[in-house]
Design a protein around this nucleic acid. Sequence first.
DNA 1: CGCATACTTGAGAGACGTCAAGCCGAGTGG
DNA 2: CCACTCGGCTTGACGTCTCTCAAGTATGCG
Lengths: 232, 232
Amino acid sequence: MVPLTAREHAALDRLEERERPLRRGGALVREKDIGGEMFVLREGTMMSSVLLDDGSRQILRFLFPGDLLGMSSLAYGEAPETLTALTDCMVAPFDRAAIANVVAEHPRLAALIMVYNQIERAALTDRLAALGRTSAKARVASILLEMRNRQRMVDPQLGSSFALRLTQEEIGDATGLTAVHVNRMLRQLEEEGLIAREAGRMTFINERGLAREANYIDRYVGLDLSWLPPAQ
Amino acid sequence: MVPLTAREHAALDRLEERERPLRRGGALVREKDIGGEMFVLREGTMMSSVLLDDGSRQILRFLFPGDLLGMSSLAYGEAPETLTALTDCMVAPFDRAAIANVVAEHPRLAALIMVYNQIERAALTDRLAALGRTSAKARVASILLEMRNRQRMVDPQLGSSFALRLTQEEIGDATGLTAVHVNRMLRQLEEEGLIAREAGRMTFINERGLAREANYIDRYVGLDLSWLPPAQ
DNA sequence: CGCATACTTGAGAGACGTCAAGCCGAGTGG
DNA sequence: CCACTCGGCTTGACGTCTCTCAAGTATGCG
């Protein structure tokens, strides 16, 4: 999005110099963990979630390569959310001192982290509005669009057919529904000719109609970075 | 929270040098507004909300003195949310160049803005989990606790009795409920001896029980700022 | 081949929404 | 001072969306 200087590139490379693999299903951070480590997701798909004390789970966000994980450590000693791998992943851990260094030495990178925070915030508020004010069908449709669009940022030639890689229970935990009802909503979307499914593969038959159903907004377009401070 | 240097104080004062009053009910920013102004809320209570295209509204967050408003301008050219005054307010506008200057000149203040973003993020994810996975009664209870705790940060001697200053419709728009159902939930909380109400005044009779009902977490405690870079 | 995990479908229940009516207090204008 | 309106609160009856429970069907894996 923004051409970086050699010094900025070097600073980012230092954040990512260590690598750590993570198995599908593995937890990178659990709620209330202490340690304050943060990560760059390099490969794979993850999710962040919270557990309520009746045992139910709310998935907050799906994470894709390039995302920053665990930034809540900047404010809290205990992790407020769990980070789990949906597929085999590679992450690059770094600590808060590394962020302190970036902020002190690379103001433009610090500003880009703030931009990242705002994009994530907008995505969270979109889901908040979806949970509060839209129907089950709309919420499921919006998860489908979100997963495809975010996968497409990693693989730009991804078309209208893709591997969702979520169980119906995970879709339910993201949308505030039960797995049973997610199933019914998927079938309805299928019967209405909006999507098709075969063996975990999802195909958008009528993407326009799906987006209309879902009220979906892509928060990775419409960015305006003209204000960034000069590189240093 | 953190003792600031004279230079840092001066930089913050520069952000707040202009002041602008706002009447109860007035809109400071509307969705899709262009302009990218941001604000510090100095006095009063505000809310941020989005409108869905069926006309329903979701309130995302309530805002209190000291809060930063409209930071989404850091990422977007168009405002993604509306900012409305719940009471008469005073705000201090600043522009993105001011943020660029803070980031370039005052790394520790930049880091504090990141901390602020993470606190806000945690509050949003709490509400997300509440909407997705808790009952109507729990959501209403959690709004009551949130409003009291945040008012108490402005006025530390505020006790268990306070002016809520929200209509039942506003509570509904924040919790994803109808005003009618909010009314029923308030009455239930009252009948269970958790709260009392008289003429817009709310009193917590059994705060412990209310917090248990609500699953409420105060996101302004448990902060860990030990990592901040040195002042410059 | 047996087991676990995920998906599918039906029937019935419950939480929350919709519609409608009435009430109350604060302005406001005659 | 009194009608009048208006926004907000309250309550009942009824409808519907989503959940729960339960059973059955793939699919993959040791």
